[in-house]
């Protein structure tokens, strides 16, 4: 047993070192690189904690997409010449910040240690009602049945984040194509890579959604994979982003939350808001998940691409 503990200790130490260099590192790009590695290590930690769903989500969204966002921002700031600050933070500020953060960490650690052990949390309750939820994977059951309302709001949060990013578009460019122009060589390595991966990515995404009901997986992780595929295709210069004003883009964006809300509203009409009847829970949940996957993929891809910059 101590071997596992030793591995965990090593992993934790590595995580802390990488996190510290990501936060307090010298260069900005270096910090972002360390942040992505940090994301991977956290995903590993989640595997140790046997939270496979979360590990997938952390690796795909936490490290992957957030990393891409930061790198995208870094490159744009670099072009504007503001990617680095000359002087680092002054020493007294560092000491003060160190003290505050140390205090926070200590307080939290003490509270954690003071917690009574043998806590069951809600896992027994989930296990007991899992049968009636229509899916076997407890996390998907919680996400799409027990706390479906949370997930509905969260899918709206994601969509509204995109609308918020689009609301920053200057009036002249409205309705234009999001993101920067990509100029990859048509016969180069990237375009070959861009042609090779998408089919595989599609298969993996569909598998993730389908498997989500019984094993770790689900709409969010699958959506991220699809978004990654789409971004690769765009970067490979094979297709360009759809203009922000295109009708079916908007349909795709609204599909996921729309289906979810429709199911909820129908439930409300029959007296139980967001109620998923046990009879055909599985097909219903799967249809919601597929719709969500489409919307999440499109939203995430456009979020990373940023606001419309080029006229349609």
């Amino acid at each position: 047993m101590t071997a596992a503990l030793l591995f965990d200790a090593g992993l934790c130490l590595l995580v802390l070192v990488v996190a510290f260099s990501a936060v307090a590192g010298r260069g900005l790009f270096g910090a972002i690189a360390f942040f992505i590695i940090y994301g991977m290590l956290i995903a590993l930690a989640w595997l140790r904690l046997e939270g496979v769903d979360v590990a997938l989500a952390e690796a795909a969204i936490g490290a992957g997409l957030t990393g891409m966002l930061l790198i995208g921002a870094w490159s744009m700031l670099k072009q504007l010449g503001v990617s680095g600050l000359p002087g680092g933070p002054s020493v007294p500020l560092r000491i003060a910040a160190g003290a505050v953060s140390g205090l926070v960490a200590l307080a939290l650690a003490a509270t954690v240690l003071a917690l009574p052990d043998g806590r069951e949390g809600l896992s027994p309750a989930v296990a007991e009602s899992l049968g009636r939820s229509g899916v076997d994977n407890p996390v998907t059951a919680v996400l799409l049945n027990f706390r479906a309302y949370d997930t509905l709001l969260e899918s709206v949060v994601l969509l509204i984040a995109l609308i918020a990013v689009w609301s920053l578009t200057p009036r002249a460019v409205w309705g234009g194509v999001p993101g920067l122009a990509q100029h990859a060589r048509s016969d180069g390595v990237l375009s070959m890579f861009g042609r090779l991966l998408p089919p595989l990515g599609l298969v993996v995404a569909i598998y993730l959604v389908w498997a989500g009901s019984s094993q770790p997986g689900g709409a969010f992780q699958a959506g991220t994979v699809l978004a990654a595929v789409w971004l690769l295709v765009v970067m490979a210069g094979l297709y360009d982003e759809p203009p922000a004003s295109s009708r079916n883009l908007r349909l795709a964006l609204v599909a996921g939350p729309g289906v979810f809300l429709a199911v909820g509203a129908v439930g409300a009409a029959f007296g139980v808001f967001m109620g998923i009847p046990e009879g055909f829970a599985k097909p219903l949940i799967l249809s919601i998940e597929f719709a969500l996957t489409v919307s999440i993929a499109v939203t995430l891809a456009l979020l990373v691409a940023g606001r419309p910059r080029r006229p349609a």
Binding site: G188, V189, L190, M192, F193, L196, L197, L200
Partner: peptide, 16 residues
């Protein structure tokens, strides 16, 4: 196989 493919492509791009 995927890791190999990705590494090869990225190496090409970085080199170029």
């Amino acid at each position: 196989m995927l890791a190999g493919l990705a590494a090869a492509s990225v190496a090409q791009l970085v080199a170029r």
